[in-house]
Simulated assay, not measured.
Amino acid sequence: MTAPARLAVLISGGGSNLEALMRACEDPAYGAEVVLVVADRDGCGGMDLAEQRGIPTATIKVNDYAERADWDHALATELQGANPDLVVSAGFLKIMGPQVLQAFPGKIINTHNSLLPSFPGIHGPVDALNYGVKIAGATLFLVDEGMDTGQILAQCTVPVLEDDTEDTLLERIKVAERAQLVETVGIMMRSGWRVEGRRAFLNSED
């Protein structure tokens, strides 16, 4: 039997996306396992979820380092020690630097709560709501040196309702976003992925 692919997951909060991934990994047919969880701050509930499952964890805070490059180096070193096949940024609120990106070229993904390239940044849902769009959603993409600018792997949509608030729209997006993340990571780990210019494809075959 082929060994499951190795996932390292980066978090900054409660870990709902992490929990969804860990539950999916309980099925051998999913083809992956979480081998490391890294947080950028203390008190992340997702760390408790990982530790309950015996998954190694690390907390690497920017403020613990004199320079941002030192933090970037520490994060790259921690991730390399786990030898992941894919690094999943799941609600991780830090932009990764060149050392991490160079250590895992084309192997870091992030999920964002808007339909990129529209509404990048940390206020995607409220920006979409204020703009008056009728459809919102989430995007899973490959991380590059920009902010929410990498090649798109998958997108899902949710309707914007007339009585939506930021909170109700965000919650609807989160549900779709989690499902998309789990499904897409599974496909990537079982079938691979490839990039051709600006386009990314969920299999490694030509």
Score class of each variant (00 low, 15 high):
Phe201Ile: 13
Arg41His: 09
Ser12Asp: 05
Val88Leu: 13
Gly91Tyr: 10
Trp71Gln: 14
Val143Lys: 02
Leu161Arg: 13
Ala39His: 01
Gly45Asp: 10
Arg178Ile: 14
Gly91Asn: 13
Ala82Trp: 12
Asn83Arg: 12
Ala50Lys: 05
Gln180Gly: 07
Val185Glu: 02
Asn63Ser: 14
Ser12Arg: 09
Ile60Asn: 02
Pro98Glu: 13
Val133Gly: 04
Arg190Val: 09
Val160Gly: 08
Gly31Ala: 06
Glu78Gln: 15
Asp144Met: 05
His73Glu: 14
Tyr65Ser: 09
Trp71Asn: 10
Ala32Lys: 03
Leu142Cys: 00
Phe92Met: 04
Val100Cys: 11
Ile122Thr: 14
Thr111Phe: 03
Asp127Leu: 12
Leu129Glu: 10
Ala50Phe: 07
Asp70Arg: 09
Val100Thr: 14
Thr77Tyr: 01
Ala200Asn: 09
Lys61Leu: 08
Leu202Ala: 09
Leu75Gln: 01
Ile95Pro: 01
Glu183His: 10
Val175Arg: 06
Ala82Val: 10
Leu79Asp: 15
Asp40Val: 03
Val143Met: 06
Gly81Ser: 09
His123Glu: 05
Thr149Glu: 10
Val160Asp: 02
Gly121Leu: 02
Ala103Trp: 05
Phe119Lys: 08
Met188Trp: 09
Thr77Phe: 02
Arg172Pro: 08
Lys174Pro: 06
Ala29Tyr: 03
Arg194Gly: 03
Leu49Trp: 01
Leu79Val: 13
Gly146Met: 06
Leu7Arg: 04
Gly97Leu: 03
Glu145His: 08
Leu18Cys: 00
Arg178Gln: 14
Gln151Asn: 12
Arg194Thr: 09
Arg53Met: 02
Leu170Thr: 15
Ala179Thr: 15
Arg6Asp: 02
Val195Glu: 03
Asp27Ala: 13
Asp27Ser: 12
Glu183Tyr: 01
Val133Lys: 00
Ala58Pro: 04
Gly91Lys: 05
Trp71Thr: 07
Asn63Val: 14
Glu205Trp: 08
Val9Asn: 04
Pro159Gly: 06
Leu18Met: 01
Arg190Gln: 11
Asp167Ala: 15
Gln102Cys: 06
